[in-house]
Amino acid sequence: MTLDVLYFAWLRERIGLGREVIETEAATVADLVAELRTREERYALAFSDMTTVRCAVDQDLVPLDTPLTGAREVAFFPPMTGG
C-alpha cells in the first residue's frame, strides 16, 4: 500500500523532512516504525524512544498497535503542547 507519512516538530527536524510517500506492507503503525528504523540512522534516532512519540492515522490520534488497513495518511509527532 502507498502511505503519506508526515513528521512534525523535532521528529521532522531529526528525520529531515516533513512528508514522504512510502510503499509498505506494514500491518500496524508499530510495524511501520520498525521498518522505518531499519532504513537509516536518522529514522532510528527519531524513533529510538517511542514513549515520546505519538501517532495519528488519517488524522485521528491512535495507539501504536493500530492496524494500517485502509489507511492513507500516517503522522508521527511528539506529545502535543497547544494552548
Binding site: A9, A75, M80, T81, G82, G83
Partner: peptide, 30 residues
Amino acid sequence: MDYLKSRAPFWKKEVTADGAIWVDARETDE
C-alpha cells in the same frame, strides 16, 4: 482548555539567545 493542551496537534518551540528548544509536554497537563 484541558483538551486543547494535550489533544490538539500544536507544538511550541521557544527561541532564546541560547538557542531553540521544543517545549516538553507536561505530565500535569495530561
